[in-house]
């Protein structure tokens, strides 16, 4: 866990990551709040808050008496949101660092081409 951020957000992100990679499949059951708490060694209320955040966003849903499941379409919704954040979290910092090193946007495209060819 990263000490400087609320843990419930980090739990929600980890569950999202597992949905993105397919480790948790749509309509598949996710671990219980207590299982999350014991695995990550965090307070169960905190784990519950992370899970509830995803329920509010429609990523997970509850089946009364059975448990928590990944909603259909969750994967696409998560990746759509992450794509929006991609510019802010990856492209913008990269451009700022490039500017301070005197690397032009054109040179960046060339570097990307080289890396991916």
């Amino acid at each position: 866990m990263d000490e400087g951020r609320p843990i419930f957000q980090q739990i929600a992100e980890r569950v999202e990551n597992d949905i993105l990679t397919g480790a948790l499949s749509e309509e598949g059951q996710v671990p219980s709040t207590n299982e999350f708490a014991l695995y990550y060694r965090i307070n169960p209320a905190t784990a519950g808050k992370g899970v509830n955040l995803l329920v509010e966003q429609g990523i997970l849903y509850k089946r009364r008496g059975i448990g928590m499941f990944v909603a259909a379409g969750a994967r696409e919704r998560i990746s759509a949101r992450r794509r929006e954040m991609f510019v802010l979290e990856y492209i913008a910092p990269m451009l700022a660092e490039a500017a301070s090193l005197g690397i032009t946007p054109h040179q960046i495209s060339q570097l990307i081409e080289e890396e991916t060819s």
Binding site: M1, E3, R41, I42, N43, P44
Partner: peptide
């Protein structure tokens, strides 16, 4: 605690070790 919720008050100096357990 997860199985049997109850009120726990814990004094400690080892803040880093327990901080994730605290509500």
């Amino acid at each position: 605690y997860a199985e049997n919720p109850r009120t726990i008050l814990l004094s400690t100096h080892l803040i880093d070790e327990v901080s994730n357990l605290l509500e």
